[in-house]
């Protein structure tokens, strides 16, 4: 099923590339089986698998609070949300598989620490208000990115994103509702909500990726319709929506430079601590080690289930042959 992947050394590369780029310019989707540059495939495998890993690792910070949810309603919501993240990981692994990479290779890359996933999940969830804040800010930032990726020129990635966006809006809403409720609650609840916003605001801005000037892949990704906006554009959209809403809720943001700019209609932010971002991406965030260990443990502890299912399938097949 994987398509034909063109290399710049191929004799017809220039001609094929022109046709390919014309298709994208016409708004056509590239499907498995179609010609595509090897570099297009490589970038997609990198992005989609990282995205899938992020969904899977993203279950950990929230899953940790399922047993401690303050009510049955909140517990059901959180279980449904974490279940969704598992499903989103599956949609995305499927999309990457259409490019000829196996799920097994991708899992191996995650568990060995070779693959990257979103920097945001390497921060700890210290209080229950973190669960609402992750929904509002982290899923809010993710949706901005995913809405953009739903326009992606690669059919399977685009379809996975459309499905994910439809489900993710619930994640965003439940978090926003929770934080706004606590902001209007007792002084203790308000303090808990404010503390969570203070800790998650900057990491949420960082998770949308380095500034455009430090993002060498972006021009190619935009030209091939993989991304339709740059990191800074998506980050600006996120701030423009969330900053006024958080202030409206009676909370503050941990950025003394944050201000509304009449001229551009944008909310301008102060300098982002990119040293922190690169440290987290490089494996030295507060929770990197724990996250990877938790994934490895889950994989090892699930081995008996995989073995049992394989044994069952083998026996059924034998019985079928015997009959």
């Amino acid at each position: 099923m994987p398509g034909k992947f063109g290399k710049p050394t191929d004799p017809d590369y220039g001609e094929r590339l022109a046709e390919f780029e014309a298709r994208i310019a016409r708004g056509e989707k590239i499907e498995p089986g179609d010609w595509m540059p090897e570099e297009y495939r490589r970038q997609l495998v990198r992005m989609i698998s990282q995205h899938a890993h992020s969904e899977v690792v993203g279950m950990l910070p929230e899953g940790a609070w399922i047993t401690r949810a303050p009510s049955l309603k909140r517990k059901m919501i959180l279980i449904a949300k974490v279940q969704d993240e598992a499903g989103h990981g599956q949609y995305l692994y499927h999309a990457a598989e259409t490019l000829g990479v196996t799920r097994e290779e991708m899992l191996e890359a995650l568990l060995s620490g070779k693959a990257k996933y979103s920097s945001i999940f390497n921060y700890p969830t210290l209080t229950w208000a973190d669960i609402g804040t992750i929904g509002w800010l982290v899923d809010g930032a993710a949706i901005k990115n995913q809405t953009m990726l739903a326009q992606c020129s690669y059919g399977p990635y685009s379809r996975a994103m459309v499905r994910i966006c439809a489900e993710e809006t619930f994640h965003h809403k439940q978090g926003k509702e929770m934080v706004i409720l606590y902001a209007k609650g007792t002084p203790k609840q308000r303090a808990m909500a404010q503390d969570a916003i203070n800790r998650w605001w900057w990491p949420a801005l960082m998770m949308l990726g380095p500034h455009d000037s430090d993002s060498p892949n972006t021009p190619t990704l935009v030209r091939w319709g993989i991304k339709t906006k740059t990191n800074d554009q998506v980050r600006q959209e996120f701030i423009n929506e969330h900053a006024p809403e958080i202030l409206e809720a009676g909370l503050t943001l941990p950025d003394p430079d944050l201000r509304y700019d009449e001229a551009t209609g944008n909310w301008l932010h102060g300098p982002i601590n990119w040293d922190e971002f690169w440290a987290v991406v490089g494996g030295n965030g507060p929770m990197n080690k724990e996250r990877l260990e938790a994934r490895r443990r889950a994989h090892a502890e699930g081995a008996w289930v995989r073995e049992a299912l394989a044994a069952y399938a083998a026996r059924r097949q034998q019985t079928a042959v015997a009959v």
């Binding site: 059901m76 619930f170 900053a243 006024p244 202030l247 943001l253 201000r259």
Partner: peptide, 27 residues
């Protein structure tokens, strides 16, 4: 039956706030 998985379950929370288009902390 799991209506809490739909965004509509949460209604309209937090209208967009034009009045905050000032320096943070003035309000």
């Amino acid at each position: 039956d799991k209506t809490y998985k739909q965004q509509s379950y949460y209604g309209l929370v937090g209208a967009h706030a034009g009045k905050h288009k000032r320096t943070q902390g003035d309000d």
